[in-house]
């Protein structure tokens, strides 16, 4: 298990490096940094001056090496739009997005695990269909619509929760419900399908034939083997939530990373975009790594790769 973990971590680092290079180059191809720095309507000689002054005329490889070495020392440069250190900007917004993403995933799992297991224990009965109906509803309702329904109910009618902002934990309740309920159905289907399969597996029959307790049969013997695809999906979904929760962040005016990415792209704020892209892809890579490690712990057969 240890050797496996070390190999996987080394691989993740290599992938992170490759992704950083690819994102750096792609971003440079998407627009001219010197023009962005010089500002809209700048004269050609001003742009040329900026290009020289910032070293943007050097080969891309050299620029990448410089950016990488700065980045590794924690220096992400200065935002062209906000005129402050990028690291400060990101450090401000990341916690909001992380809290929201993690809370949403946990909420989604808290809903989908029991429902998925329940449905799998009573397949094709009214219990199963009720769970399925809940799931379909979650997937069919547009995110923003569900969010608005939540606001109508909890903020306007019941006056229990604040509509927008990030001040207290109450501010995170509705965004978490909105995002979590949106991703829960995929988990529920996966748990249900996995549990139906493992409950029918020979080793679960062995567990029953050995007179083990129903709890052990369901949770120790069936659930563990059904969780492997769920863990992989959770990593992917969490990565998606961190980068793609712009809609929900906007509705609830949560000043998170998604909103920052949106702003930095709109204003051609290269250093900020670069930092957010790098951060999100590294987070994504390490989420995948975490999923691999958890799955290797769940299933010893996966520890050889």
């Amino acid at each position: 298990m240890l050797g496996f973990a070390v190999r996987r971590i080394a691989l993740a680092l290599a992938v992170a490096l490759a992704v950083s290079a690819a994102s750096f180059i792609l971003l440079r191809l998407s627009g001219d940094v010197a023009t962005a720095i010089a500002g809209e309507g700048a004269r050609a000689e001003d742009i040329a001056f900026v290009r020289k002054a910032y070293g943007l005329d050097r080969p891309l490889v050299v620029q990448y090496a410089e950016w990488l070495s700065n980045t590794l020392r924690g220096d992400f440069g200065t935002s062209l739009y906000f005129k402050t250190e990028v690291i400060g900007l990101v450090a401000d917004k990341l916690p909001v997005t992380l809290v929201l993403g993690l809370a949403s995933i946990l909420f989604a799992l808290a809903v989908s695990l029991p429902l998925g297991i329940l449905a799998a224990l009573h397949p094709n009965t009214w219990i199963d269909r009720l769970c399925l109906a809940l799931a379909v509803l979650g997937q069919a309702l547009p995110n923003f619509f569900f969010a608005l329904c939540l606001i109508l109910l909890f903020s306007i009618t019941l006056r229990w929760l604040p509509v927008s902002g990030t001040g207290t934990w109450q501010h995170f309740v509705m965004p978490t419900l909105a995002l979590g309920y949106y991703v829960a159905p995929a988990f529920m289907r996966l748990v249900r399908a996995g549990m139906i399969e493992t409950l029918a597996a020979d080793y679960v029959r062995t567990a029953r034939a050995s007179g083990l307790s129903p709890a052990s049969v369901v949770f120790k013997h069936a659930l563990r083997n059904a969780l492997i695809p769920v863990v992989a999906l959770a990593a992917v979904q969490l990565g998606f939530l961190l980068g793609g929760s712009i809609v929900v962040e906007t509705i609830f005016a949560l000043d998170g990373l998604g909103y920052l990415a949106y702003q930095s792209i709109t204003y051609k704020d290269f250093p900020t975009t670069q930092a957010v892209v790098l951060l999100l892809s590294v987070v994504y890579i390490f989420l995948t790594l975490a999923a691999d490690l958890v799955n290797a712990w769940l299933d010893p057969r996966l520890r050889v790769a």
């Binding site: 020979d202 080793y203 029953r208 034939a209 050995s210 007179g211 013997h221 563990r224 769940l298 057969r301």
Partner: peptide, 23 residues
């Protein structure tokens, strides 16, 4: 259930899949 595995045991045809791979 209390008898199964205690007084009354069963062995199956397919040993490759009869044991839980995770334990």
């Amino acid at each position: 259930n209390a008898l199964r595995g205690a007084k009354l045991s069963m062995i199956f045809q397919e040993p490759m899949t009869a044991l839980n791979p995770a334990y």
